[in-house]
């Protein structure tokens, strides 16, 4: 009889009793080390459970059920528009993050002189290696995203995919379209060129003409009733901080709901 208490779960003994390769030994040792501290097994079980819940049983797809493959193949390309908007959003995010290394939202003036913001865009376009291309990619991916999002909405409308279990996702989609447009608008203002300035002017006037809360909205979004440095700064922070977080989160919810509810197939 040994003084040590017998361990029912002598994992090391169990490991030694088996002939394991080096790789298997390392793997098992790591797994046991982690499991002793974090009880990974419980979570693996959860994942396994989830996996089988998702994959064990699936309904026949609509086209499978009614033999519609030959009738409605022409709808299918339009079902890629949602992915296309997500992909161009990712492209815009990457190129935008790179542009952010060089852009400075500073010293907005409106007397026709070059401001720091305008200058930094000029430097990106004129002197930075591949800078012009980078700005071009950012702009085009934004344009493509807006176009894809609008076409995606039309596809959803004309195939009736917004109907009964999917109303919430339709409304979330409308919020996402609005966010995309605000994304585009705030980005449009950043170079602080003539176009940006007068688009900003329209924006201020639009917010001022909202009944009751107009002045408050103008203060909040544009930092005053006339365009100034604080306008540029607010647009910048909206564009690179608030909107990316909010939009990414809502896109995740949107796609998550599609995953849960399944894709509304063409009829």
């Amino acid at each position: 009889m040994s003084l040590e208490r017998k361990d029912d779960h002598d994992h090391n003994g169990w490991m030694e009793s088996r002939e394991l390769t080096l790789l298997e030994t390392i793997y098992l040792t790591t797994l046991m080390w982690l499991d002793k501290r974090l009880r990974v097994v419980d979570y693996l079980e959860l994942l396994e459970d989830l996996y089988y819940k998702v994959n064990m049983q699936m309904p026949k797809s609509h086209t499978e059920q009614y033999n519609l493959d030959n009738k409605f193949w022409y709808w299918y390309p339009l079902y890629a528009l949602g992915s296309f908007s997500t992909i161009s959003y990712i492209v815009a995010a990457i190129s935008g993050a790179l542009l952010g290394f060089y852009y400075a939202p500073a010293a907005a003036a409106s007397d026709g002189t070059m401001t720091v913001a305008y200058e930094s865009v000029m430097i990106i376009m004129g002197q930075l290696n591949l800078g012009y291309f980078l700005r071009s990619v950012h702009r085009w991916s934004a344009q493509v995203m807006v176009a894809a999002v609008f076409l995606h909405m039309l596809r959803v409308y004309f195939t009736g995919a917004y109907k009964e279990p999917r109303e919430i996702n339709w409304i979330i989609g409308i919020i996402l379209i609005s966010l995309t447009l605000v994304f585009g608008y705030t980005g449009y203002l950043l170079p602080w060129s003539q176009l940006s300035f007068w688009a900003g002017q329209i924006g201020v006037e639009m917010s001022l003409s909202i009944p009751l809360i107009g002045e408050w909205v103008a203060q909040l979004m544009f930092g005053g009733f006339t365009l100034s440095q604080s306008t540029l700064q607010r647009m910048y922070i909206l564009h690179v901080f608030f909107l990316p977080f909010i939009t990414t989160a809502i896109i995740a919810v949107h796609i998550g709901i599609v995953w849960m509810q399944g894709i509304a197939e063409p009829h």
Binding site: A108, A109, S110, D111, G112, T113, M114, T115, Y118, V121, M122, M125, Y132, F133, R135, S136, R139, W140, Q143, V146, A147, F150, L181, G184, Y185, Y188, P191, W192, S193, Q194, L195, S196, F197, W198, A199, Q201, I202, L227
Partner: peptide
């Protein structure tokens, strides 16, 4: 089709056409 860069902001000189981006 790379983008153009218009003149810097100038409050004293209203452009002939004021427009947002096409999607607005």
């Amino acid at each position: 089709l790379p983008p153009e860069m218009p003149a810097p902001a100038n409050a004293n000189q209203t452009p002939a056409i004021i427009l947002p981006d096409w999607y607005l």
